[in-house]
């Protein structure tokens, strides 16, 4: 850590953040002393065995500027984000959420009501309930509008880790990449991009993932939601944790025309920015078609595609086959900036 201070990149979801967690937060906490998944796994959540089922627990604080963005708002993001972290661990049943709000003095009540309605709607889509909460108000200028923390619990038949890839496993993405990150970036920097609607994909994946798990019949071996850092970061983590190489084929990766145009224009790779309604799923080759079919049946998964596979070469690396050649797909660290020409 430079100069002993936290920098913006330590919240970016990439290498710097993992380093901060490992070197500062996780220090002194032993791994869970019982059968389960704890902090050391650095997964999307924790899991504790309860009888023949697993209770999965996760938490997420949501800050976003602007609070209302094309395709969603901070309320939808807060509910979907936590439901998706649970779903990525295989936990889709009996979802209960907490909601803690920290609000800036002067925040308009009508906006708060709009956020609340959005949370109700998103909970309904996910089959989730908010069961308890907390409210704090801070002085003007002490935070930027509103922070929402949601924690969630849900049951999984068997937890899915993000480290479960083996050689030969296939990788599926459940839809177009980069929409959320590029939509928010365009809104934040007032970039006027013609040619299509660039909207966030923020959505709870619970129902779609439940269907995929059922179709996979134990053959889904790893899942992540490619939020901050995008697909590049998620695949990098999956490759590192499983100690396999991953080859993905760029031309098979779905990217919406609007996101591609925006990405080309401002020089930001849609594979390196956040999604809030997508999953990347590692699947045993023998069930990949069944899982893909189940995903495509769901409205959120209609663009799902097989994009790559786990290989023995270059363990820990992600190789992008562009159709013209190959290169490494490296996760970005910190927030990408729009470029000049």
């Amino acid at each position: 850590m430079t100069d002993g201070r936290v920098e913006m990149r330590h919240g970016g979801g990439g290498r710097s953040m993992r380093k901060l967690i490992e070197e500062v937060f996780a220090r002194g906490f032993a791994d869970v002393p019982f059968d389960g998944i704890g902090l050391a796994a650095m997964d999307d959540g924790a899991a504790i065995r309860v009888g023949d089922r697993w209770l999965v627990l996760t938490t997420d604080s949501h800050v976003i500027h602007p609070v209302f963005f094309p395709g969603g708002d901070i309320g939808r993001l807060a509910v979907a984000g936590t439901c998706n972290d649970l779903a990525m661990m295989g936990a889709t049943e009996g979802i209960a959420l907490t909601c803690a709000m920290v609000i800036e003095e002067g925040f308009p009540l009508d906006k708060l009501e709009r956020i609340q309605r959005s949370m109700v709607e998103t909970c309904r889509e996910a089959g989730a309930m908010i069961v308890t909460g907390d409210t704090k108000v801070m002085g003007k200028g002490e935070l930027d509008g509103i922070i929402i923390n949601t924690s969630g619990i849900a049951f999984a038949g068997a937890p899915v880790r993000d480290s479960g890839l083996h050689l030969g496993d296939k990788l599926i993405v459940t839809g177009t990449m980069g929409d959320h990150g590029l939509a928010v970036m365009a809104a934040r920097h007032n970039l006027e991009i013609d040619g299509g609607t660039l909207v966030s994909d923020v959505a709870p994946l619970t129902n779609m993932i439940r269907a995929a798990l059922r179709a996979g019949n134990g053959g889904i071996v790893a899942m992540k939601d490619p939020t901050r850092g995008g697909l590049a970061s998620s695949l990098g983590e999956m490759a590192t944790k499983a100690n396999v190489g991953i080859v993905i084929h760029e031309r098979d990766i779905p990217v919406s025309a609007a996101a591609r145009a925006a990405g080309e224009l401002i020089g930001i790779d849609p594979l390196q920015v956040a999604n809030e309604g997508k999953a990347v799923i590692g699947v045993r080759a023998e069930v990949v078609d069944a899982v893909l079919a189940a995903l495509r049946e769901h409205p959120l998964g209609r663009d799902a595609a097989i994009v790559g596979e786990a290989v023995a070469e270059r363990p820990g690396s992600v190789i992008l086959d562009t159709g013209y050649g190959r290169r490494l797909l490296v996760e970005s660290d910190g927030e990408p900036l729009p470029r000049i020409c």
Partner: peptide, 17 residues
Amino acid sequence: WYEYGGRPDLSELKDAV
């Protein structure tokens, strides 16, 4: 080069996938 891995020798992968 930092972002794209420079010129990694990926030739060994040609037959693997």
